[in-house]
């Protein structure tokens, strides 16, 4: 079998588009973390990635690398995936762990206090909250009443006319809805405990979600800027890095 290089690379890129930075909830590709990508004739894929600072949390780095390996590994023609982290305080350790298929705990031993699954879960919930907030705010702006919103089912949400801006927001939310919504609920919107929302307290609920967004935005703004500053990519970091992170805007 011969592989079409261009097509294969594009397929790998699409797979990497599905890998997000857990805290920023944005694809590692958009964040420009992917530094190098090579596809071999034998179906091997080698990915080099980098992070905004030498100090970025090792568990996040490991998590992203693990997700990259998983997503790319699912492509039918891929035989082997090698993921390498560059210029990081734990680069050697992480690369060793990745190379040998070790868990995060096994890679770091006593230095690690929690396995990645808990961490993955924590940040999936935060992503759920942020995506839900963006969509709820959009629906509110369009004039949908709290009572309508909280009682809406998922199919109703899917069919709702919400304009060109709303489409991507809805898709992003639906992609993460199952993080908190159990299989038995048909409601479009539930809280992190899978309980229905209340029309009376929807505004306060949104404000509370807003603080989760504030945190992520802080990281997003800094990470983009620091990455550009560190690798001096665009000559110097510019407002472009910040403007891309306009609040509530779908990525």
């Amino acid at each position: 079998m011969t592989l079409d290089h261009t097509k294969c690379e594009a397929a790998v890129r699409r797979a990497l588009d599905r890998v997000t930075d857990p805290e920023l909830d944005e694809p590692v590709t958009d964040l420009r973390f992917i530094e190098r990508l090579t596809v071999g004739h034998d179906g091997s894929v080698s990915i080099g990635f980098r992070l905004p600072t030498y100090w970025c949390a090792a568990n996040f780095a490991f998590l992203m690398a693990d997700d990259m390996r998983r997503e790319v590994g699912e492509l039918p023609w891929v035989r082997k995936v090698q993921v390498t982290l560059g210029e990081h305080m734990y680069a050697d350790k992480i690369n060793h762990g990745l190379e040998h298929g070790l868990s995060f705990q096994a890679t770091f031993g006593d230095e690690a206090s929690a396995e990645l699954d808990d961490l993955r879960r924590t940040f999936l919930v935060k992503a759920f909250q942020r995506r839900q907030e963006s969509l709820l705010r959009h629906l509110t702006t369009l004039g949908y009443k709290p009572a309508t919103i909280v009682s809406m089912t998922l199919p109703q949400l899917q069919a709702l006319p919400i304009g060109p801006e709303g489409g991507p927001l809805r898709q992003r939310y639906v992609d993460r809805r199952e993080v908190c919504a159990g299989p038995d609920t048909t409601l479009a919107f539930v809280d992190t405990h899978c309980s229905p929302l209340s029309a009376d307290t929807l505004l306060a609920y949104l404000q509370a979600l807003g603080r989760v967004t504030i945190n992520a935005e802080f990281n997003g703004a800094l990470c983009r800027g620091l990455l550009a500053a560190r690798f001096n990519e665009d000559g110097e970091p510019s407002l472009y890095d910040f403007a891309r992170m306009a609040p509530g805007k779908a990525v």
């Binding site: 600072t53 030498y54 100090w55 305080m89 800027g225 620091l226 550009a228 500053a229 970091p237 890095d241």
Partner: peptide, 15 residues
């Protein structure tokens, strides 16, 4: 680590 620490601070400064 000392080099990277101040480089990171400088990143904050420029950003």
């Amino acid at each position: 680590h000392g080099q990277q620490f101040i480089d990171c601070f400088y990143g904050y400064h420029t950003v």
